[in-house]
Structures are given as structure tokens and as C-alpha cells.
């Protein structure tokens, strides 16, 4: 799975969890939650959806490392490969 495909999947997921936002306009280093106004409930739903879609398990202590699109794309890419 390419970085671009992961990014597209992330945008789709964000759009389904927060339909009134424009995740497609996120810049690579934008903080996802702050930029889109996503609270901890929505973010948890987002993580649940990503784990299911990519077959990974994201421990709570990693949340701090996946705050931007770039960080999250890299994080998933590394885990999907391994």
C-alpha cells in the first residue's frame, strides 16, 4: 500500500467520522484534531476504524506520535509492511 493510498483512506475515514469537516485540505504537518476540531470521542472512533481497516493495533501510548497526517501515514505504512 502506497503512502498516497493510505492518505486517501485516512481522508475517507475522517470524512465519515466528521462529515462536516474538509480533511482533504489537511496539510501534511497540520495537527489533525486541532485543525478539524475533532474531540477525543471522534478521535477514538477514528483510531478504531483505522485499526480495523489496516489490521493493526494502536496502543494508547502511541497517540501522541500520530497527530499529523504525515506522522499517521508513516506510522501506518511501517506497521502494514511489518
Amino acid at each position: 500500500m502506497t503512502q498516497e493510498e493510505i492518505k486517501q483512506a485516512l481522508v475517507q475515514r475522517l470524512k465519515s467520522i466528521a462529515p462536516d469537516t474538509e480533511p482533504g485540505q489537511l496539510q501534511p504537518d497540520d495537527n489533525i484534531r486541532q485543525t478539524l476540531g475533532i474531540d477525543s470521542f471522534d478521535y477514538l472512533q477514528f483510531i478504531v476504524a483505522l485499526d480495523e481497516q489496516f489490521g493493526i493495533e494502536t496502543p494508547e501510548e502511541d497517540y501522541g506520535r500520530i497527530q499529523t497526517m504525515r506522522e499517521l501515514t508513516d506510522y501506518i505504512a511501517a506497521r502494514v509492511k511489518s
Partner: peptide, 17 residues
């Protein structure tokens, strides 16, 4: 919370709220 969430699958994690 950190302890219990560490033992739970992501779907069953709790938030401080």
C-alpha cells in the same frame, strides 16, 4: 485508566470523561 486501557482492545478503551 492507562492500566485498564492497556488491557483492553481499542474498541473497549475508556476516556477520562
Amino acid at each position: 485508566l492507562a492500566d485498564t486501557n492497556g488491557q483492553r482492545p481499542v474498541k473497549e478503551r475508556l476516556l477520562p470523561a
